[in-house]
């Protein structure tokens, strides 16, 4: 049975990634890929055809300038009516996730959150893999009733190259409900200058560091390597030495090199560094789990190993 796919994310980059996966799914199901755009004064709705969107459904109006879950839900339900999807892909941003759950409830159907993989099985059900148990395990889940709704995190699927596709633009006529949640202020967040998620090299501190001043050793290593500095949760949440931590409840990173210093390697931390290409650990406890999940490790005191490593790297790198 042919099934259409409908993709939505308020984050354009993520939406294009969804269209890549959506096209693959739609092709295999003999259906059509469609996209939904919601906003105010949308000027570039034609662009999505290049990524395979047959119908780009557009809900445009002042009421959509800022994301409001009830208004966006109203637009979404119109888009569902207009495009009859069997599969709905929504970008797993914070707003995307609350919207997905609300739309799923309105359509009385299931939803799978933050899917890392997606496949259609022989019976036409949607099967996904996603993290559970605070990120320590991967669950394989099946959605048995259409429309299947899933949310997809950034970079789970690659963005496709733009092609020659042609599509149409369909304007949706949405009556926006009176907003019940009134936004009285929006405070822009200052983006910390460390963009850990995109960093190619990260050196990271754990509770093996005894004092905040000692992080200087790690900063020196970071400088030699051209690395960003990260940390485990206690260093940030309990000690307050850094703004952000890495792990299941913090940043998820995928550097080429991750160097964990004085970090024990609990499942919650490990969940955030799994996609590192090369993992290195320095930990004085030979039984620490971090050694089990590393490529290279030294069992030793970071206070002596790090200065020696800095010296050795300086010599090597000139």
């Amino acid at each position: 049975m042919a099934q259409n796919v409908l993709a939505f994310s308020e984050d354009r980059e993520l939406l294009i990634q969804l269209l890549g996966k959506g096209k693959e799914l739609a092709d295999s199901l003999g259906g059509e890929l469609n996209a939904l755009l919601v906003g105010s004064n949308i000027s570039d709705s034609g662009e999505l055809a290049q990524y395979g969107s047959k119908k780009t459904l557009v809900a445009d109006g002042p009421g959509f300038e800022h994301f409001s879950v009830e208004a966006y839900k109203a637009a979404f339900l119109k888009a569902v009516e207009a495009s009859d999807p069997g599969i709905i892909l929504i970008g797993a941003t914070k707003r995307g996730k609350e919207l997905a759950a609300r739309v799923a409830a309105a359509l009385d159907t299931g939803c799978m959150t933050e899917c890392m993989t997606l496949e259609v099985d022989e019976e036409g059900n949607l099967v996904s893999e996603r993290l559970t148990y605070a990120g320590s395990t991967i669950a394989t889940e099946v959605s048995r009733r259409a429309p299947h709704i899933v949310t997809i995190p950034s970079r789970a699927f690659e963005a496709p190259e733009p092609g020659e596709g042609v599509g149409e633009i369909v304007t949706l006529d949405v009556s926006i409900p009176e907003p019940r949640v009134k936004v009285v202020e929006r405070r822009e967040k200052t983006k910390g200058d460390v963009d850990l998620e995109g960093a190619p090299i990260i050196v990271s501190a754990g509770r093996g560091f005894k004092a905040k001043e000692d992080l200087k050793i790690l900063e020196e290593l970071a400088e030699v390597l051209g690395a960003k500095v990260g940390c485990s949760r206690p260093i940030s949440a309990d000690m307050g030495w850094m703004d952000d931590w890495i792990g299941i409840s913090g940043r998820k990173v995928s550097p080429k090199l991750y160097l964990a210093c004085g970090i024990s390697g609990t499942i919650q931390h490990a969940a955030g560094i799994r996609n590192s290409q090369i993992l290195v650990a320095i930990n004085e406890d030979e039984n620490a789990n971090i050694h089990e999940i590393s490529d290279y490790s030294i069992v030793g005191d970071l206070y002596t190993v790090l200065p020696a490593l800095i010296k050795a790297l300086k010599e090597k790198l000139g």
């Binding site: 099967v127 559970t132 320590s136 395990t137 991967i138 669950a139 394989t140 889940e141 048995r144």
Partner: peptide, 9 residues
């Protein structure tokens, strides 16, 4: 409608 098939580290 959503069922967990298996859970693994």
């Amino acid at each position: 409608s959503v069922e967990i098939l298996n859970v693994m580290a």
